[in-house]
């Protein structure tokens, strides 16, 4: 069970959180104008990163907030958590 540092509540056990998939996937501002390919990309296509991955979490059993995290998918270590709407902080992305 991971420890996740909620930007609002501090470090909490993973049990309290719900994973929300890849972060920074932007819903087209004008969906009607989006091409089928754009819409397909938005709906279904996600990265499968080996290494540092920006993902969404929700502190569902705590403060209820969605936020983003940078997690190394090879080690399960979190490099940073940050609030929704913020840009990911710079972190060293080199893996050993």
């Amino acid at each position: 069970m991971l420890i996740i540092d909620c930007p609002y509540c501090g470090p909490r056990p993973e049990l309290e959180f719900a994973h929300g998939g890849q972060a920074h996937v932007v819903r087209p501002a004008d969906p009607a104008a989006a091409s089928d390919d754009d819409w397909l990309q938005y709906l279904y296509l996600r990265d499968n990163t080996r290494g540092v991955f920006a993902e969404r979490w929700r502190h569902a059993r705590g403060c209820g907030r969605f936020f983003n995290a940078l997690r190394d998918t090879t080690t399960d270590q979190f490099l940073a958590t940050y609030r929704a709407g913020e840009q990911p902080p710079a972190v060293p992305r080199d893996r050993p």
Binding site: A18, R27, R56, G64, F66, A84
Partner: peptide
């Protein structure tokens, strides 16, 4: 409820 929160908070 979770879906509504998602749109309110992030979209």
């Amino acid at each position: 409820f979770g879906m509504m929160e998602d749109y309110i908070q992030t979209e």
